[in-house]
């Protein structure tokens, strides 16, 4: 049995109504417990009008479970899932701005792009912007390389994550819209780790 008291990275997926002020209501559930939100992304979901938060924190499963219930308790939150990194497909996007002359002179750009899976988004006389997507280690690796060549700006996006074993939210939403929702909308546990999982 996996320990529930060991801290690890959890991906919290929150399906919500699109409402002003909800971001604050969600954020304070973490700050109240002095939990550091490592990454937070808000975006539309697969269902029109339903928003989706992807939140990453490093905590014990026990704490994450309590937080998930507090989140789901909020009036405008429909559903909360929490998953370990093994249970999700996730990506972060990073942009790197470097001086074009330095990079052209000292680096084999082609090798760089190949090795790090990067692509050039903008190439100007004065600077070039590269982009990578991937896990934290992958986007970080390129930073280390480019630091030596006068990295001007670096930015990494919040994490977006897709739950491997999820059927999406369309059917769930129909349940919610009923006055008497079925049992599956009540559970707030891990999605069943199941057969439908495939890994990259």
């Amino acid at each position: 049995m996996e320990s529930t008291i060991e801290k690890k990275e959890f991906n919290i997926t929150v399906y919500t109504e699109n409402q002003i002020g909800l971001l604050n209501r969600i954020a304070i559930i973490f700050s109240r417990r002095k939990l550091n939100v490592e990454s937070l992304n808000t975006s539309p979901s697969e269902v029109e009008s339903i928003h989706r938060f992807n939140i990453v924190i490093t905590e014990t499963e026990e704490v994450v479970k309590k937080v998930a219930r507090q989140l789901e308790k909020q009036v405008e939150v429909l559903k909360v899932y929490f998953n370990t990194n093994d249970d999700v497909i996730w990506q972060e996007l990073a942009l790197y701005k470097v001086p074009t002359d330095v990079i052209a002179e000292h680096v084999s750009v082609e090798r760089l792009l190949r090795e790090y899976g990067a692509r050039a988004v903008v190439i100007r006389k004065d600077y070039t912007v590269f982009e990578t997507t991937g896990h934290r280690e992958e986007t970080d690796a390129l930073v280390n390389v480019l630091q030596q060549y006068g990295l001007i700006e670096f930015v990494r996006s919040a994490r977006v994550a897709i739950i491997k074993d999820s059927d999406g939210f369309h059917a769930k939403l129909r349940e919610f819209e009923r006055l008497e929702p079925g049992e599956d909308v009540v559970e707030n546990e891990y999605l069943n780790k199941g057969q439908k999982v495939f890994t990259m």
């Binding site: 919500t16 009036v75 405008e76 429909l78 939403l173 919610f176 929702p181 049992e183 009540v186």
Partner: peptide
Amino acid sequence: HIRSYRPYPIVR
């Protein structure tokens, strides 16, 4: 009824 709000959890 508010679709995102379930004040009475289903009794199991």
